[in-house]
């Protein structure tokens, strides 16, 4: 993994982090007054995967669900259009209909979500089956428990579809922890379906090294442990002290990280003010 890849991923993550911080402010002051699902703390999963597919010059079909701002932004979704979407404007990326939960973008092949957690697993599977296009399906650790997600994994394996399932594992279903809900791990489950699977932290290097070689060559599932900085919905914090991958990577990058962080922070702030 080259250093410029680390930088590319950091830049993407930085856009996501500053974007979410701006949303957080506006939810706190009630400028945005409908449910939003902030992805701060979880941005390294989509940012890294977007970085990998960009390098491979692949434009996959993307099926996300709630907490998807970072997916949209990492894969090159227009920032202003997402701001407008959250302001309910008709020229938002989802024409003002999607809000925070249901982000759609024809430009980046990102398909909207209906609100049923994990429905994107079956729908993405069908889209991939019929088009044979590389497909990424982002779900959470809770959505993975949906029966129809399990059925989708089974069919994806049977049909050997070029799909990457990304389980954004923040350990919570709203506030119910994984240990209270199940005794199995995503990796073991996928393995039972004969799907190549990994259980990783949101370290970009680890994600890259594990999925790069076989990405879209066979069905794959990657369970990425992340930390949700903000509440399930709205503006608040689950815990004050939490490991923050973004801050860790910024520190690792030293001065370059600080410069990028500052520059992007300023840009995002301005875009919010202007839009």
């Amino acid at each position: 993994m080259k250093k410029n890849f680390t930088l590319t991923v950091f830049e993407k993550a930085s856009v996501c982090r500053h974007f979410e911080n701006e949303v957080f402010k506006r939810v706190s002051n009630r400028e945005i007054n409908f449910p939003v699902y902030l992805s701060a703390g979880q941005e390294y999963a989509p940012a890294t995967i977007a970085g990998i597919v960009e390098r491979k010059k692949i434009k996959p079909l993307i099926f996300g669900q709630h907490r998807g701002h970072s997916i949209y932004l990492s894969f090159g979704g227009n920032i202003v259009k997402l701001i407008k979407e959250l302001k309910g404007k008709k020229d938002g990326c989802t024409y003002g209909m999607g809000g925070s939960l249901s982000i759609h973008s024809n430009e980046i092949n990102m398909f909207g979500h209906d609100g049923f957690m994990g429905s994107n697993a079956c729908i993405g599977t069908g889209a991939c089956f019929s088009s044979k296009k590389p497909t990424i399906i982002f779900i959470g650790d809770a959505a993975l428990e949906e029966d129809y997600v399990l059925a989708s994994l089974s069919w994806v394996s049977k049909k050997k579809l070029p799909i990457l399932f990304v389980v954004d594992d923040n350990n919570y279903a709203v506030l119910t922890k994984k240990d209270d809900r199940r005794d199995w791990k995503a990796k073991e489950l996928a393995k039972a379906f004969k799907i190549t699977s990994f259980d990783l932290k949101d370290d970009p290097k680890k994600i890259y090294n594990n999925i790069n070689k076989y990405l879209f060559k066979k069905p794959m599932l990657i369970n990425i442990h992340t930390n949700r900085i903000f509440w399930h919905a709205g503006a608040g914090k689950d815990k004050e002290k939490i490991f923050d991958r973004y801050l860790q990577q910024k520190k690792l990058l030293g001065k370059r990280g600080e410069i990028i962080d500052k520059k992007i922070g300023k840009k995002i702030k301005l875009l919010w003010e202007k839009s």
Binding site: C122, G126, A127, A151
Partner: peptide, 11 residues
């Protein structure tokens, strides 16, 4: 898998 089937067709 009846529920998933409808989703696959939707895709």
């Amino acid at each position: 898998a009846d529920v998933a089937g409808g989703g696959i067709v939707t895709g």
